[in-house]
């Protein structure tokens, strides 16, 4: 691990100031991804600004009938919250699908959103990766690796976003609250937080320098059933090779793109009276596989249709 300085700010204002004063500073929350990447020297922050004790650890009702999840609420805390379990079961299921009990006790809401890809070639520092070193090339393209994107990939990057939680939040139309160093705040749809790789896969979100996530706001859930289902290579404690969140008529897919993939084609088809299978077939018609990940086309079509059938989405169309 490379040396760094460690700071523990008292509030958001001082946290943002500490980030600005040292080039290469990074926020530290649960650290379950960042500390791991620092050991591998994939991340080499010069300063860590520990935000884990900032007063952003509460889950609150919003005036609009939703819930506001503070940025450093832990994954365990959110999944255990009775309001989340009763009103946002897809989110509780998604969080409980991820990692292990120990990791969920440390990992935070904002940290989960900002975690890096688990692409094997991102982790292999002997191979080129445009995320680690812009312009170096992508060893995953044409490499021996199956857990890559089938939507929105580019010639520079075919990595996926690994979060389960974010997929459910996408289907829930969550909003991300962001504070900036100039004292302003803004709200961004979760759908717009993460970017597709394009030519700059090292720029993963639309957060600007001097900004930090302070909360995720869940609007009242869309009417209808909810579910999160995940396919993986062992029964528990493994990243998704494909996942589906359904909230009413809203559908999001995981492990298929550089961001949680909102399945808008499927949603429109459902709204137009398509069956679950027809809706998912329409969505997957826009996917592009590269050989090793061909299996995802059938997997996602079947998993998505099963989820939509289970929740009864489209039944009343």
């Amino acid at each position: 691990m490379k040396p760094f300085t460690y700071e523990r700010p008292k509030d958001v204002t001082s946290a943002l100031a500490m980030m600005a004063e040292v080039p290469g500073a990074r926020f530290l929350a649960g650290g379950t991804n960042l500390v791991d990447l620092m050991k591998l020297q994939i991340e080499q922050p010069t300063q860590l600004v520990d935000v884990s004790r900032l007063p952003l650890g509460e889950i609150e009702e919003t005036p609009g009938g939703g819930l506001r999840l503070g940025a450093v609420t832990t994954n365990s805390q959110v999944a255990a919250d009775l309001r989340v379990r009763a009103r946002y079961p897809a989110l509780a299921q998604a969080i409980l699908s991820g990692a292990s009990g120990q990791l969920r006790n440390k990992a935070t809401t904002a940290g989960n959103l900002l975690q890096r890809t688990r692409c094997a070639y991102f982790y292999d520092t002997t191979k080129p990766c445009n995320k680690r070193q812009p312009g170096a090339g992508c060893a995953a393209i044409g490499g021996i690796y199956a857990n890559t994107a089938v939507f929105g990939a580019s010639e520079a990057c075919i990595a996926t976003h690994p979060s389960d939680m974010a997929v459910a939040m996408s289907a829930l139309d969550a909003q991300v609250e962001i504070a900036s160093q100039d004292g302003q705040s803004r709200s961004l749809a979760l759908e717009d937080l993460h970017r597709l790789p394009g030519e700059t896969p090292h720029i993963e979100t639309n957060l600007q320098p001097g900004e930090m996530i302070t909360a995720v706001v869940l609007p009242p859930p869309a009417p209808g059933g909810q579910i999160y289902r995940k396919a993986r290579e062992r029964a528990s404690y493994a990243f998704a090779i494909g996942s589906v969140a359904v909230v009413g008529g809203r559908v999001a897919l995981g492990a298929v793109a550089h961001k949680p993939w909102r399945a808008k084609v499927a949603e429109q088809a459902l709204a137009g009276g398509a069956s679950p299978a027809e809706a998912m077939a329409a969505e997957m018609a826009g996917a592009q596989a590269d050989g090793h990940n061909d299996f995802k086309l059938k997997l996602m079509a079947r998993l998505g249709a099963a989820c939509l059938t289970t929740t009864g989405a489209g039944d009343d169309q």
């Binding site: 460690y6 650290g31 500390v35 860590l48 009990g101 120990q102 990791l103 440390k106």
Partner: peptide, 8 residues
């Protein structure tokens, strides 16, 4: 419970 290896 946490993983002590991932916590500074």
């Amino acid at each position: 419970r946490i993983n002590a290896c991932l916590s500074l």
